[in-house]
Design a protein around this nucleic acid. Sequence first.
DNA 1: AGCTTGACTGATAGCGCTATCAATATAAGA
DNA 2: TCTTATATTGATAGCGCTATCAGTCAAGCT
Lengths: 347, 347
Amino acid sequence: MAKKSKRELAALGSATQDVSLTLADVAKRAGVSPITASRALNRPELVNEATRKRVLETVQTLGYVPNLLAGGLASSKSRLVAILLPTINHSLFSTAVQAMMDRLTEAGYQSLLGSTGYSAKKEEILLEAILGRRPDGVVLTGTLHTESSRRRLASAGIPVVEAWDLGDSALDMQIGFSHEQVGQHIAQHFFAKGYRDFAVITADDPRGLRRTNSLVSQLKQLGITHTLVETLPLPATWQVGREGLRRLLKRNSRPQLVICSSDILALGVLAEAASMNLHIPDDLAVLGFGNITESEFAYPALSTVSVNAPEMGRQIAEALLGRFADKTCNLKLRVDTGFTLLERFST
Amino acid sequence: MAKKSKRELAALGSATQDVSLTLADVAKRAGVSPITASRALNRPELVNEATRKRVLETVQTLGYVPNLLAGGLASSKSRLVAILLPTINHSLFSTAVQAMMDRLTEAGYQSLLGSTGYSAKKEEILLEAILGRRPDGVVLTGTLHTESSRRRLASAGIPVVEAWDLGDSALDMQIGFSHEQVGQHIAQHFFAKGYRDFAVITADDPRGLRRTNSLVSQLKQLGITHTLVETLPLPATWQVGREGLRRLLKRNSRPQLVICSSDILALGVLAEAASMNLHIPDDLAVLGFGNITESEFAYPALSTVSVNAPEMGRQIAEALLGRFADKTCNLKLRVDTGFTLLERFST
DNA sequence: AGCTTGACTGATAGCGCTATCAATATAAGA
DNA sequence: TCTTATATTGATAGCGCTATCAGTCAAGCT
C-alpha cells in the first residue's frame, strides 16, 4: 500500500529519477498499455513512431530504469555473458577481455566476471552462482579445474566459448590458437637463427606446459637433446620470473636463450638479469609470451609471442552475438586466431 | 506443455543436471511445498533438520541450480554488487578489487564489473545497464565523469561505497585515504632526507593531480618554489612514463627525484632511465604510487606509496555486507585506510 | 459489400521465485 | 485444563516484465 502510493507520487510529481518506478508507471503516464511501453523500449520496430517517441520521452522525464531481472525472467534472456578468468589481477587475458566486453556492452550485454582462482572448490561454487544468473553465454579463458565443472557447463545448455586454445574436446565453440604450434615455431625460429642452448621458465599451468613440451620435443628433433626446464608454481609474477632465472643459473651452464611461459615471467627475468648485470641479449636472450602492453616498452623491449588478443576478444564477442541472434549459427565454430613471433630487443 | 513434460521427465529420471529444473520440481520430489524447499536453501534455520537434509539431497541428485533472476525479482535482493572501474586492464585497483570480490563471493554475492572507460557517454549507458540489474550495492573506484551519473547513483537508493578517496561530497560511504596527505607527506619526507630538486610525472587524472598540487604547495612552504610537472594524458602506461621522463630531461635541469602518479608510470621511468644508462637512485631517484605487485620485484625495487589495497578491498566488502544486513548501519561511514611510504631501492 | 492484408495495440497469463500471513502440532506455563 | 509460546510447514499473492494470442482499424483488392 505504502509502496503503491509512493510510486504514484513519483509518477505524478516531476521527479527525474526514482528507485522503484515500473514500466506500468511509464505506460500509464504515456497513455499506453504496459506491453506497448515494453515494445517501445525493446522492439521499437513494432511500435508507431509517435507512440514510441512519447514513451521514450516519458522514460526520460521519469528517469525510469528497466528492471532487467524481471525482463530476464520473463523472456529467459538475461543479456548477461559470464567470463571466467583464472584471476582478475595481472591477467594475460585482460586485453582480450577488455575488447570482448567493449563489443558486448555495445550490443547491450553485460559481463559477469568470475575469477576461478586456484581452488577447485571455489570454482564449483562460482560456477553454480554464475549459472544461477542464467547467463546467455559463457566464456572460458583459463582452464577449468574439474571435469565436473566442465560437464556442468556443457549441460547448462548455453553457448560456451573456450578461448585461448584449440583443444580436442571442445564443449562448444573454440577461438584461440594452438599452443603446440607456438612451441614448435619458437624452436624452429631460434634454431634457425643459430641458437643452440635453450632453457625454459614456465609456470605450472597446463597450456604453458603444452607449449614447453612441444618446444622441447621440436628441439630434440633438431638435435638438441637437452633443454633445461624450470617449472614454478602459479601465479606467474615478476617474483617467480626472478626466482626462475636464479635457479636456472645455479645449474650448470648459462643458456643462450630463456623462453618464458608468459611476459610477466619474462619481465621478472629481465629484472633479475639487470640485477646481475647481465647484458641482454648478448649475455642472455629472453623471450616472453602473450605480448602484454608493458612488454613493448620494457628495456630492453621484450621479444615475445603475440596472440592478437584484441582481435580474439572481438571474435569471441561476435561468435556469441551470432549465436544469440541465431541459435544454430557458429555451431561447431573453431577459429584459429594464430600468433606472431615479435622480435624486439631481448633476443 | 512440451516444456512441462520435459521437466517432469528430468525430475523422474535420474538426470544429474538439467537446464530448466525449477524449485517446484525439487519440492515435489522431496515431498515438500515449494516454499519449504526455498527456505531449506535460503533460510535453513527455519526448516527442520531432516526436511532440510532431504531437500538438499534432492537438489544434489537433480543438479538443480536456483534461478537467481527469479529469486532476485521476488525478494528484491539481487545479491549483486556492481564495481565501477576506469579500466579493467592494468588497474591500480585490481588488488583491492580482487580482495573485495573474494570476500563478497564468500558471502554469496557476485560482482558485476563495469569499466567506465574514458567516455562520459559510455559511462551513462553502462550505469543505466548496471542499475537495471538492481544491484544491492555499488562500489566506485575511479571517479565518475559526469555529475548526472553521480546523481543517478545517489538516487538509486542503494548503498554506494566510494573507494580510494575521502572527498567532501560523499554520496554515501567512503573508504580510502587523503590524496592531499599523500602529496604533503611525500614532500616533507624527501625534503627532510635532503632532496631539493623535485619533478613530477602525472597522468591527467583528478586524484593524481590532487596529490601533485598538494605536493607542490607543500614544497613551496618548505622554500622550494619551482617544481617541474609533466602532465600526460590517460591511460597511464609504461609508454607514457617513458615519454614523461624524456620530456622532463629535455627541459633544463635534471631533477634529483621524479615523483610519479602511479607505479606504472614509474616503471616506465625506470625503463627509460635504464635505456639512457642513468643509474638509479644516484643519477635519478624515482618514486611510484600504489605499490602494485610488480614494484617490489622491479630492478631496482621501486620505492612507492602503499595504500594497503587488500585491506581496503576487505573493508569495502565488509561495509557493504554490514549495510546489507542492517540498512541503518555504516550510515555515514568514512574510513581512512591510510598509506605508507615504502622506500626500497629507487630512492 | 465482403474479404484480406498489414500496422498497430492490448488482455491475459505466466517466468521462478519469495514475502506474508495462516495453519498445524507440540511443548511450556499458569 | 486452558492459554501461550515455539517450531515447522503451507497457501496465496505477487515481484516487473514479456510471450502469445487476440483484437482493432484503415487501406487495398475483388
